[in-house]
Amino acid sequence: MSVLGNKKSKASSEVPTSSMADIAFLLLIFFLVTTTFPKDKGLAIVLPEPGEEAQVSQKNILHLLIQSSGVVVVKRGESQQEQQMRPQEIEGLWRQEVTSNPNLIAAVKTDPDAPYKFMVDVLDALHSANAERISLQVLEN
């Protein structure tokens, strides 16, 4: 009847060390793979070379005049007709305009007192519409 009392536990009291290397290497490789270095994001533009001034026909220019209130006034080439827009609407406008005139250039003219974010909003919209020919200027009154 004392069989149960005599039975010794077969479980080892030591931590198994043979798989420790595997665990450590697994951790090592996991951290190596998941470590990412943060990269900046932004809207890339290409500035003109100093002294380089291109003459562009007025009919190939789409004027986007950013007012200090954030309203964008759109003027097409030579016509004096003005149209007020929100920056978010520029993307659709550009897609329409560029299909009728592939040589179109966006002339973004910002009011000197306008916050930078409005210019970024318009630039963002133009980038979303895959516009590549963009000119950044200051709005002169």
Binding site: D40, L43, A44, I45, V46, L47, P50, V120, D124
Partner: peptide, 13 residues
């Protein structure tokens, strides 16, 4: 930047 001859500029956002 134009006067410095820089061509590639990114507006970080």
């Amino acid at each position: 930047l134009v006067n410095a001859g820089v061509v590639r500029v990114v507006f970080a956002t």
